[in-house]
Design a protein around this nucleic acid. Structure first.
Length: 775
DNA sequence: CTTGATTATCTTTTT
DNA sequence: GATAATCAAG
């Protein structure tokens, strides 16, 4: 063992011989933290308040285990996001060296996908199984609903998907679902008694397609461990230590897996904070914490209550909010950090102004305190809110990054290429097939596709069987088209058989399929960026193949890894990381920033109207607010807009009730402002709406456009984007959203889609889009 | 049958 | 505002 006093060389931090010579990290911990790190065998529950050094404790604990001779291969560490697991792996690697790579660490979904891939044959799957994302699942459900001739106005794919997903997360199989009187009564009441039948068919179709959806990854792991004790035995003994981060967000399905896995060694550590439980909508169950105490009566509990992250203003403000929740475990979070500055409240007239004000605030704060872009984060409730901030930041030349939302891997062109890759690996993948069969256009339409899928289902053969022997099933022109497609795929499959790696195959497919060429020939701005995106995907595949961490370089391995990367892990843009981060509060969990802006604090937006309607759970929304507040280290700002465009309409907004729930003594606002944002003071009459939009509003001077100068203002109040020229006349045929109107522009007839809204007796013209000449 | 154009629909959060 | 579903024309 190396001498403890040996000089610590930061440059050699990864060298194994240094790992025990570092300053004794146990000294840097407070007492409960230290206990959590060194606690020996047996079940342990750590209740960790926000900013209490939870990640540090987990990291050190794993490092501690390894230093005490536990084989990294025998540690299982489960997190919720790829980001969190990547971060933790990096930090452990910093402490114990490259051994850290051998730890079984990742999200529930990725770890169990890996196990399912190894054990696929037990369940009748092949290890090349596809993973259906939400779009695939919904599309399949739509097909089934159509095939059953059910009314798709009643059976909405979204609703059906959520019902099925909820069932799977409670480990209710299709048969259980159909035989459960309570569920059936529920469905009957909702006039959707066929959901059980749809569920059953859906499961069958997924199985036939050799595909699992997100929930199946957990559901099938449970089935695997239930029905094949040998397999369970293997993993129970393999994993000596099991750790679960964000335990408050696990659902029953996830909890049962971890409980089973740790039943033999009983070394299970769960870390969580009930105040930060924000995934109940996905089946997360706070009761798991109570169940845990029941299932492991000898559990030792440690509370981490000191916040090291934030100023006392921020910690106290957060506490003043969460204290309003009735259901919570007893826990006192406190800090000895300095008081820090008060919380700013920014009031804006519109969502665009909100963007400008926040961007300006960032700009000024950056200058005054000489901060970096990366010190700032903008957090919002819904992804759609990012737009106004993007525009404003761009105008000020501040670089930003958006996490989540329309992720890279959700883009059409990316999913198209992935569709080809998926189908090449797994010819039973029905959704991939539907996506690529007529792409690029080969003259194969919906009718032909439907015929093929129906034929396949009727004869109970895989789709590929029909495609590759199309002559037996069809006649005429379509034969040649389908045949060509089949030959193309076969040539791709041959490359796989020849042992080519993921990159070689993908690059070949991108070229040969004609996808790249089609995008290349598209010279529009969007076309260019699509082309670049595909190139970027190919780069990502190249990186995957070149990375030393990946032993399996097959296309199939790449697809497995990529289908579980959703929101965070875009392929590395340039290494320029000094960017303002924008994301939803959900994706911000576990992160921290010096300055945080919580934006869109308006009633019905945050707290979300939907949440209040569907689940009547204000407390979960409040916990979300708590999570958002506690992301901030030094400085926190709130903002809200008095009006906001929402799917084409302008909506009047009231300040969120959450604003008022923050103890006023932490807010940097005058009393009159405080009165103004309180419910009683705000007016929701239509007239205040008009006032907000009028150019006379002093707070938001609108840039004068040609349109605003020349549109008949008595009837129309223009929005900021217009493409009308001098002398334009506008005539509306009827009111309402997305109406088509005729216009006379300089003597030419034009057609345009415009948006109207009626407020009181006034008709407001909200925006013009797609202005073009008609004949 | 396929294609392009128009219209309807949906917007909470994530793996 | 974006995308899926539907419609009308080739």
């Amino acid at each position: 063992m190396p001498d403890k006093n040996e000089a610590f060389d930061v440059n050699n931090i990864y060298k194994e011989e240094d790992r025990l010579s570092k300053p004794d990290y146990l000294d840097t911990l407070n007492e409960p933290q230290r206990q959590a790190v060194v606690y020996g065998n047996g079940p342990l529950m750590i209740i960790a308040g926000a900013g209490s050094g939870k990640t540090r404790v987990l990291t050190y604990r794993i490092a501690h285990l390894i230093e005490n001779g536990v084989d990294p291969f025998r540690i299982l560490s489960l997190t919720f996001t790829n980001k969190a697991s990547g971060e933790m792996r990096k930090r452990i690697e910093g402490a114990v060296g490259t051994e850290a790579r051998n730890i079984w660490m990742g999200t529930f979904h990725s770890v169990f996908a890996k196990i399912l891939r190894i054990e696929a044959r037990y369940l009748g799957y092949t290890s090349d199984f596809s993973i259906y994302d939400t779009d695939d699942s919904k599309s399949l459900l739509r097909s089934i609903i159509k095939e059953y001739n059910l009314d798709d106005k009643v059976y909405k794919a979204n609703v059906v998907y959520n019902r099925i997903s909820g069932a799977k997360n409670r480990l209710v199989s299709a048969d259980d679902y159909i035989n459960n009187a309570v569920i059936q009564a529920d469905d009957e009441a909702a006039k959707m008694k066929e959901i059980g039948r749809i569920y059953k068919t859906y499961v069958t179709r997924c199985f036939q397609a050799n595909a699992m959806d997100f929930d199946d990854l957990l559901f099938n792991t449970n089935v695997l461990f239930r029905d094949f004790p040998d397999v369970l035995y293997k993993y129970q003994h393999k994993f000596q230590h099991v750790m679960v981060d964000e335990f408050q967000d696990t659902n029953v399905s996830q909890y049962l897996i971890t409980r089973k896995l740790s039943a033999v060694n009983r070394n299970i550590v769960v870390v969580g904070d009930d105040a930060q439980s924000i995934y109940a909508f996905r089946g997360a169950n706070i009761e798991n914490i109570l169940n845990f105490e029941k299932d492991f009566p000898d559990v030792h509990t440690i509370k981490l209550e000191q916040n090291y992250r934030s100023t006392s203003t921020i910690v106290n403000a957060a506490n003043s909010v969460i204290a309003r929740n009735k259901s919570q475990l007893k826990k006192e979070t406190f800090t000895v950090n300095e008081e820090g500055s008060m919380i700013d409240v920014i009031k804006a007239g519109s969502d665009n102004e909100e963007g400008r004000l926040v961007a300006t605030a960032i700009f000024e704060e950056k200058m005054q305190k000489s901060l970096k872009n990366e010190n700032f984060a903008i957090l919002y409730r819904t992804n759609a809110q990012s737009r106004s901030f993007e525009e404003a930041l761009r105008k000020l030349g501040i670089k930003y990054r958006i996490i989540g939302g329309q992720s890279f891997y959700q883009r059409k062109e990316i999913k198209d290429l992935l569709g080809y890759l998926r189908f090449t690996v797994n010819q039973r993948d029905e959704e991939a097939f539907k996506r690529i069969i007529n792409l690029p256009k080969r003259g194969i339409g919906d009718t032909t596709v439907a015929r093929i899928t129906v034929t396949a289902a009727e004869n109970n053969v895989p789709i590929w069987e029909v495609v590759s022997n199309i002559a037996n099933y069809a006649t005429g022109r379509t034969i040649t088209q389908i045949d060509q497609f089949g030959t193309l795929i076969k040539s791709f499959m041959l490359m796989l058989d020849a042992g080519k790696d993921a990159f070689e195959v993908s690059a070949h497919i991108a070229k040969t399929s004609g996808l790249l060429r089609e995008l290349y020939e598209d010279k529009t701005v969007e076309g260019l960026s699509r082309y670049e995106n595909v190139q970027e995907l190919l780069n990502a595949i190249k990186e995957f193949v070149d990375s030393e961490e990946n032993e399996d370089k097959t296309l199939s391995a790449f697809l497995q890894s990529v289908s579980l990367l959703t929101n965070a892990d875009e392929p590395d843009e340039n290494e320029d990381n000094d960017r303002v981060t924008m994301m939803t509060i959900h994706s911000a969990k576990g992160l921290e920033f010096r300055n945080v802006f919580i934006v869109g604090l308006e009633e019905d937006l945050f707290p979300s109207q939907m949440m209040l309607e569907s689940r009547q759970d204000l407390e979960e929304e409040r916990r979300l607010f708590y999570v958002a507040i506690t992301r901030a280290e030094q400085k926190l700002s709130f903002s809200y807009a008095e009006s906001r465009y929402q799917w084409g309409r302008l909506k009047m907004c009231e300040p969120s009730r959450f604003l008022l729930e923050v103890d006023a003594k932490y807010l940097n606002i005058s009393q009159s402002f405080q009165r103004e944002i309180s419910r009683e003071g705000s007016s929701s009459s239509p007239m205040s709406f008009v006032k907000n939009l009028s150019p006379r509003r002093p707070t938001e001077p609108r840039p004068a456009t040609a349109a605003s100068a020349h549109t008949p203002t008595s009837d129309f109040v223009p929005s900021d984007t217009h493409e009308l020229a001098e002398g334009d006349k506008v005539e509306h045929s009827k009111f309402g959203f997305g109406t088509v109107v005729k216009m006379d522009v300089n003597g030419t007839d034009r057609k345009a889609t415009v948006k109207f809204d009626k407020v009181g007796d006034k008709t407001l013209l909200l925006s013009f889009a797609k202005l073009r000449i008609v004949k």
